[in-house]
Write a protein that binds this DNA or RNA. Structure first.
Lengths: 180, 180
DNA sequence: GAACAGCTGTCCGATGCCGGACACCGTGAT
DNA sequence: ATCACGGTGTCCGGCATCGGACAGCTGTTC
C-alpha cells in the first residue's frame, strides 16, 4: 500500500465519522473535526491531501448555509485543498452552490464506499496538481506558458512570440534554453 | 445599454429557443444551434462571451449523455468559454457530472428570466477573466506570480524569492521593475 | 552584552540576454 | 518570371540582469 492520504474530515455526527474512518481505513488517515468553528485552530492545512465536508445541516436551517460557509473558510485558508462535499439533503440548488464556491465533488448519503474512495483519490490528485502549479518557479511557469503559447499558435513561432510579448529571437532563445 | 453579449445557444426545441431569445433580448444576441453535431462547423468560438447549453435529453437516454458530451466538445474547442447548463431533468448526479466536466453554472427549467440573465452575466464575466489570464504576456504573468508569492510569504522577500526560484537581489530588481 | 541568526537593502564586475538586421525559403498574385 | 509576403533560423554589439559580497538592523540565546 502506498503512503495513505491525509484527509481532514468535518463531521459532527461521531457515528458517521467512525463509519467513514472504517470505509477509508485502507487508503487514508483522517483528522476529524466535529465543529467547523475549530477550523482556524488547525494551522497546517498544507499537510492534508483533501477535505471531506459534511453539509452539517443545523436544526434551524435546511439551506445548507453552514456547509457552504465552511467551504468558504476552508478555501480562504488553503485554496489548493480540494473539498469533497457529503450530504443527506441532495437538492440540486445546494450542489450547484457548493461547486460555485469551489467544492470539487459532491456525494450523497448514504454513500457507496467504493465511490467515496474514488472521489477522495480524485480529490487528492487535484490537490496535488493545484499545489504543484501554485509552487512553480518562474522558470517552470515560463516554460509552461511557452509550451501553451506554441500549442495555441500550432507551431507558428512568430505568433507565439507576439502572444507572449516577446520578440521572435527572444522566443528562440527561450525555447532553446528550456529544451523544447 | 452596454454592447450586448454574444451567446451561443444550443437548444433543439425552437420554441424554447425563441423564449430564451426573448428573455435575453435586452442583454444578448444569440446564435442558435439546434444540433450539437454542427459544432465543429462553427469556427469562431472566440467571439462568444458564453455558451448556454440545453441538456437535450434524447428519447432513448435519460442520463444526459448527449449534453455532457457537448460540454466536452465545447471545452475542447475553447476551454476559456464559460458554459451554462439548462435542463428539465434536475438530478443531482447530472449536475455534479456537468460541473466536473467544466460547466460553470446549472439552471433548471422552467427558468426565471432574471436568474437566467444573472447567470449569463456571470458566465460572460468568467469567460472574460479566463481569456485575460490565457492571453497574458510573460511580463504580466511574472508580475502576477510575484504578487502571489509575496502575498503567500506575507512580505518576507527572502522566502518569496526562494519560492520563485530567484536569488534575492533578482527579486528586488523585478519588484522594482514592475512597480510593486 | 556578545554572539548569533535571519532578515533587509545596495553595490559592482562578469555574464548573458536583448532586438534590429540579414539571408533564406516557399507560396500566391501580378 | 518576378515581386511581395510571411514565415524561418542566425549573428553581433550594447546594455540589462546576474548573484556574490558587504553593511546594517532586530530579535533571541546563553
Amino acid at each position: 500500500m502506498k503512503t495513505p492520504y491525509r484527509i481532514l474530515l468535518i463531521e459532527n455526527d461521531t457515528a458517521v465519522a467512525q463509519a467513514i474512518r472504517l470505509a477509508l481505513r485502507e487508503i487514508a488517515e483522517l483528522d476529524i473535526l466535529t465543529d467547523p468553528a475549530e477550523l482556524h485552530a488547525s494551522p497546517s492545512f498544507h499537510s492534508y491531501d483533501a477535505a471531506l465536508l459534511d453539509m452539517n445541516f443545523q436544526p434551524d436551517q435546511r439551506d445548507g448555509r453552514a456547509g457552504l460557509e465552511t467551504i468558504d473558510r476552508l478555501r480562504a485558508a488553503d485554496p489548493s485543498l480540494a473539498i469533497v462535499m457529503l450530504t443527506v439533503f441532495g437538492g440540486v440548488a445546494i450542489a450547484v452552490e457548493a461547486f460555485k464556491r469551489g467544492a470539487s465533488d459532491f456525494l450523497l448519503k448514504p454513500w457507496r464506499n467504493d465511490r467515496l474512495v474514488d472521489a477522495l483519490r480524485a480529490a487528492a490528485a487535484l490537490t496535488k496538481r493545484q499545489r504543484a502549479s501554485a509552487a512553480m518557479s518562474l522558470e517552470e511557469m515560463e516554460r509552461h506558458a511557452i509550451e501553451r503559447a506554441l500549442a495555441r499558435a500550432d507551431g507558428n513561432i512568430s505568433h507565439a512570440a507576439a502572444a507572449l510579448g516577446l520578440t521572435r529571437p527572444a522566443l528562440y532563445r527561450r525555447i532553446e534554453k528550456h529544451g523544447l
